[in-house]
Amino acid sequence: MKIFRNIAALVVGWLAGSAVNMSLVTIGPMLIPLPDGVNPQDMEAYAEISATLGDEHFIFPFLAHALGTLVGATVAYLIAATSKNLFAWIVGAFFLLGGIMVNYMIPGPLWFTVADLVLAYIPMAFLGIKIGEAIQR
């Protein structure tokens, strides 16, 4: 049973974090519109125009990455039967790897890349652990 819960912690943590991430990525262009004719679902087109976007267009991607990681790590911590911290860190590492890939595929301004890779993943996994500890007290 512990093995099943630990596997579920990874899967459900990743799915919950991904749902938050995708929700914010979807909502972002509704609140901060992209230039006319840009489809945010077309990664190639988005990558081509990313250098022309204003700083405001990177707020929701940052929030998506940070809050997705936070939720994913917290959920993993809460579900895991053993080594709760480890499973939260693993989920955080998965999101970090995804963030590295996205920043490579869709290059943004340097400030965004640095803030995203330094602040959105490992610190949020740590915060997710702290939230999980507080909930389980």
Rank of each mutant, 00 (worst) to 15 (best):
V11T: 14
W14Q: 08
I100M: 11
L15G: 08
S83Q: 07
I7A: 15
D55K: 08
L31D: 06
A8I: 07
N85S: 10
V114Q: 00
E48N: 07
I49P: 11
G13I: 03
E44W: 06
V118H: 01
A80F: 05
I32K: 03
I7V: 14
S83P: 01
P35D: 10
A47D: 11
P35F: 14
L119A: 10
T74H: 08
E56F: 07
I7K: 00
F60T: 02
N6K: 09
I49G: 04
Y77N: 09
I90K: 10
L53P: 03
L96D: 03
W89D: 01
I32G: 04
V71E: 05
A80K: 04
L15K: 00
P40A: 07
G108F: 02
T82A: 00
G98A: 13
A125S: 14
A64T: 08
L15Q: 12
H65I: 00
L78I: 00
N6F: 05
G72S: 12
F60I: 04
I7M: 06
L34E: 09
I3D: 10
Y77K: 04
Y46T: 11
F87V: 05
Y77W: 07
I131H: 13
L78K: 03
A47Q: 12
V71D: 03
L31I: 15
S18V: 01
N103L: 04
V20W: 06
G98W: 08
G17Q: 13
Y46H: 10
L127G: 08
R5C: 00
P123T: 10
A19Y: 12
N85P: 00
L86R: 14
M101F: 14
A81T: 06
F94E: 05
G13V: 04
N85I: 09
L31C: 09
P61E: 12
A134D: 06
M43S: 11
L53A: 06
